[in-house]
């Protein structure tokens, strides 16, 4: 435990804790734009600078670890710096809302009363077009916080986005400006989940006029595989349809990370062909709704019939990739003990 002083009051932090976290636990919120708990401290946007006694200049709270006896002030001169830095970022922030995602920069600008005094003559960046249907990128909304690139490097360990160039020409692009589909990108959408301004966004939401704050979040478990990622279905209350899928950094098992299926493959939920109840094929050759008891009975009878005619080795079990380890265990139990066959497989194995 480390003792320090925060805005004139005694405070404590754990060993090596970042100032921004320690302050948050004491109820002092320090705004950040380039910081993300999943990533290594970066200290680029400078929005979180605070005064630390004895330091020659303000220190970034997102990259400074609390030291014993540190005297920190978050409400002195540094609040003016926040407004100035926000003004600066606005001078090249041409498109504040490309994909309906919340924009941390414009929210901050509103709170601080910051406006751009002018637009930089070189603010306009080359537009980016990509043939994938899931993720869009609006370079004119990017504030070069580099969160997305660092996410691909530090979390996904892949090469999908790069921070290209230097000075006013610096910009974020998919590696060598290729289409994402031609990079190592797996379209997991992690980059857009960390983007503070919506420059990276769900492409299918472009022009959809969706306000994230109006959506209802329904927490659930992803059904696509056994990992059990926790996610939020973002439902539009007006239409009762899922608009997009998000996940929170504190969710167990996936820590807010998702794969392309979990984040983008939710359309099946509303698909007219989706099965919502058991169906049994009748004498007429058509499928008819049935109860689970009826359906399972039909399946059991069918298996028993095959065993009676051809023996137990004629039966095999193929388990769905969506099952968990425990469910797969039960399937092999059913196959080996219940039926007496060793022909059991899960498509997760391939």
């Amino acid at each position: 435990m480390v003792e320090f002083t925060l805005d004139g009051r005694p405070a404590t932090a754990s060993e090596g804790e970042l100032l921004v976290h320690a302050a948050a636990r004491q109820g002092v919120f320090i705004p950040t734009l380039c910081h993300d708990d999943k990533l290594e401290p970066y200290g680029g946007c400078r929005m979180c600078v605070v005064d630390v006694e004895g330091a020659p200049r303000p220190m970034p709270a997102c990259a400074t670890r609390v030291a014993p006896g540190m005297v920190v002030s978050t409400n002195g001169s540094t609040t003016d710096f926040r407004r100035t830095l926000t003004e600066m970022l606005l001078t090249e922030h041409l498109d504040p809302n490309p994909g309906g995602r919340p924009n941390e920069l414009t929210d901050l600008a509103q709170e601080l009363g910051a406006e751009a005094p002018f637009i930089l003559p070189d603010a306009k960046r080359e537009p980016y077009e990509d043939r994938n249907k899931l993720m869009g990128y609006e370079p004119d909304s990017c504030i070069l916080c580099n969160r997305c690139v660092r996410y691909t490097q530090e979390v996904m360990q892949c090469s999908a986005l790069s921070l290209e160039g230097r000075g006013g020409e610096a910009r974020i692009v998919p590696t060598w400006g290729k289409s994402w589909l031609d990079t190592e990108c797996e379209l997991c959408g992690g980059c857009l989940s960390v983007c503070p301004t919506g420059a990276l966004h769900e492409k299918f939401l472009t022009g959809a006029d969706v306000e994230e704050s109006a959506l209802t979040k329904v927490k659930t478990t992803c059904t696509f595989c056994g990992v059990g990622c926790q996610l939020d279905l973002n439902v539009d209350p007006a239409t009762d349809r899922i608009v997009k899928v998000t996940s929170e950094p504190h969710y167990v098992s996936n820590e807010g990370n998702l794969c392309v299926k979990g984040r983008f493959s939710f359309n099946f939920v509303h698909h007219p062909d989706r099965l919502t109840e058991p169906l049994v094929r009748g004498e007429d050759g058509e499928l008819h709704p049935a109860t689970w008891e009826q359906a399972l009975q039909v399946a059991a009878d069918g298996i028993k019939g095959v065993i009676a005619r051809h023996g137990t080795q004629a039966v095999g079990f193929l388990a769905s990739a969506r099952l968990t380890n425990e469910e797969n265990y039960l399937i092999q139990k059913l196959a080996r003990n219940g039926v007496g066959t060793n022909s059991v497989h899960s498509c997760e194995a391939t």
């Binding site: 200290g43 680029g44 946007c45 400078r46 929005m47 100035t84 830095l85 600066m88 970022l89 001078t91 090249e92 930089l120 504030i143 070069l144 580099n146 921070l163 160039g165 230097r166 000075g167 006013g168 610096a170």
Partner: peptide, 12 residues
Amino acid sequence: EESCQKCTPCRI
């Protein structure tokens, strides 16, 4: 032109 771009005050 020579700013590395990392921090806002220098880059902008």
